[in-house]
Design a protein around this nucleic acid. Sequence first.
DNA 1: AATCAGTTCAACCGCATCACA
DNA 2: GTGTGATGCGGTTGAACTGAT
Length: 250
Amino acid sequence: MGRSPCCSKEGVNRGAWTASEDKILTSYIKVHGEGNWRNLPIRAGLMRCGKSCRLRWLNYLRPDIKRGNISHDEEELIVRLHKLLGNRWSLIAGRLPGRTDSEIKNYWNTTLGKKAARVQTESSSPPTAKYFSRFRNPDPDPPVTPAAPKPQVIRTKASRCPKMVLPTVQPNQQEDNPENSRDFNFLKFYCEDEIGKEGTTGLSHSANSMQLEDSQLFKYWLVEDCLIENNAALDLGSFDFLLNDTQHWP
DNA sequence: AATCAGTTCAACCGCATCACA
DNA sequence: GTGTGATGCGGTTGAACTGAT
């Protein structure tokens, strides 16, 4: 007994969406909101699979979507995040307002991935911001650098990791120690962004202790937040330092 | 002008995970 | 704790487009 299909394949339109289908879907969602995708096509009168409707809405019809013209800053951020996260397109998209995972995935596969591969072939140095800046200002004489270790892609799926308890950095400690202050701010960010969704991530927290499921996960959030906070100035070399500097990790 | 090869990107597919009974 | 439907995600596909010959 196999898994039941998401919808009947019979009598369902496939392929490119027409303008009238877009209009129907958009006006339906404006009135009834998102969700219940499986029943949406029937209720809206669309001969489409629910999955297809969801995809169309999330990737193309939502009003807050920015399409095309990916700026250099966005491009650089995508490269940095990809170095950290690998092909976690939805996480990357989550840090680029108005961009979808689909657009970033396509952009990477058609543009950035090729650039990165080309540069990787030219030189085996690690992908620092300076390194990738050659996309804009090609260097006719790239420096020869020693081979770098394989880029570290950090797992972010908490539910797959064994649980561990990390000591909490208390707010009152942050005034005494700048490092604690930094960690606390990151921790706060992490709490707001992820642990706040208790029950959906499998993580929990209390006033005095936090249960995270992997120290690497925590590291990732520290580093990623650093990336976001310091987007304009931070060189990826700093990341390598942070990633390798395990001494200061919880 | 016709043909071919390469590129782009919207849409699809299958699997993983979540939410809930 | 388990089963099931709903949703989310990443990889792949293929039609449309573009440029070269």
